[in-house]
Design a binder for these strands. Structure first.
Lengths: 231, 231
DNA sequence: CGGCATCCATTTTGATACTG
DNA sequence: CAGTATCAAAATGGATGCCG
């Protein structure tokens, strides 16, 4: 069971020895929005079987990146949460997300799954800390059954699964409209007029919040020319 | 030959579909310090066979992250270089390196390989852009047979393989001393006195350069307690 | 629900031998 | 030097069954 390593005295390689196996980074991505139960994790990660999920979680525990926690009453079930070391992977994973937003997010494909939490993490990736100086807003998102909230506090942002304590804004929206919103295929205003979304809270505050997120400009990866004769 | 994907409409997952396979990130790490030939890449990546290396390079080319280039005379051999999209992975990879420096770089193990270029990239990961405002220095490192240089230009840094055009500083040092230097087991001054290193250029300038890099404070990943009875 | 064990068909990989 | 070809070992994924 000797896990495979790169055997390089290099910070990048050492990191990949810990989180480079298939599914591991996506598992951490799930935990970045708060503790999750075994079955929630599996539900978010189609294609990952129970055996491999259990093995990956054990690995993360063993390496001190995650730990098993008991959820506070009334839940009382067990769940997995990131340790300090695990949580500090956020900057790296958010950089991967930023790159993906710029270079890899073309049209959604037929067979791709989607979960609102991913988009909420995307918001965190697009957050402009400088623009948020002095701003304090809590916004709750209710996307179909899923509830998330973001808390902006003077240059910092937190994006977690679950309802907010005292939200300044609550956005209730269908998953489809949410996807279009994030992909900038449509605007929140449009979703509201079609009835796909409702907003409660100060509209002025909402528009100030919206200005804190900037989607990177889309780039095009240059595939090699097929080198065939010109048509 | 359908490559395996996560099938998630998520920026992180899409990125990992492109660079998440084994060796791919390390290949990009190698190319971050400049174009490399097939055999150089293989020499840096012990354990990666020619077959897999060829496959990975073909994949990176196909996805527009790298491209084959012909080195300028007198070399004239072919090599691989990053495209714009590939080069923009640098922030993400450097975040992984920063995390590794803090959480994963304990003692060098017996069977681990080391190449000076990795440490030079580590310097880039530790670079403090704010501290470098208004500073311009070019420093060449000659570590055994390998030559690298870094160019600091007012808040930006470049770290490339090969000699510098007009270096302000040249540091010639043995690989062993270089490892100890980077790991902060010893100082450059000590290496100079023992003869393991020589420095040419303005010493004042060197000490100003050294202040631009700050190794993250080491953290300790908390392994789960063995849960055995207390001793 | 949470999680481990087992079996099995496919992929991926690692190591080497071989070719232009 | 720059790859292809080949083959054995390991990792993955899916299904299924078990147990507290």
């Amino acid at each position: 069971m000797e896990q495979r390593t790169y055997k390089q005295y290099c910070a990048t390689a050492r990191t990949l020895d810990l989180i480079g196996e298939r599914w591991t980074v996506l598992l951490i991505r799930e935990l970045l929005t708060g503790p999750k139960r075994f079955s929630d994790l599996q539900a978010s990660l189609r294609g990952l079987g129970t055996g491999l999920l259990a093995a990956r979680l054990k690995h993360l525990e063993h390496e001190g990146l995650a730990r098993k926690v008991t959820l506070p009453p009334p839940a009382r079930t067990s769940a997995y949460a990131l340790t300090e070391a695990g949580a500090e992977l956020a900057p790296a994973i958010l950089e991967l997300a930023r790159w993906g937003l710029k270079w890899a997010m073309d049209e959604r494909r037929e067979d791709e799954t989607f979960h609102p939490g991913w988009a909420v993490l995307g918001l965190r990736a697009c957050f402009d800390a400088d623009a948020a100086a002095g701003i304090h807003v809590v916004c709750e998102f209710r996307v179909d059954e899923e509830v998330f909230h973001i808390r902006v506090d003077d240059g910092t942002i937190e994006a977690l699964h679950g309802p907010a304590q005292h939200p300044d804004l609550v956005i209730t929206i269908s998953e489809n409209a949410f996807v279009e919103l994030i992909g900038q295929t449509s605007t929140l205003a449009e979703a509201v007029t079609t009835g796909a979304a409702t907003v409660s809270g100060d509209r002025e505050r909402l528009s100030r919040l919206a200005r804190l997120f900037r989607l990177p400009s889309r780039g095009v990866r240059q595939a090699p020319q097929p080198s065939g004769q010109a048509s």
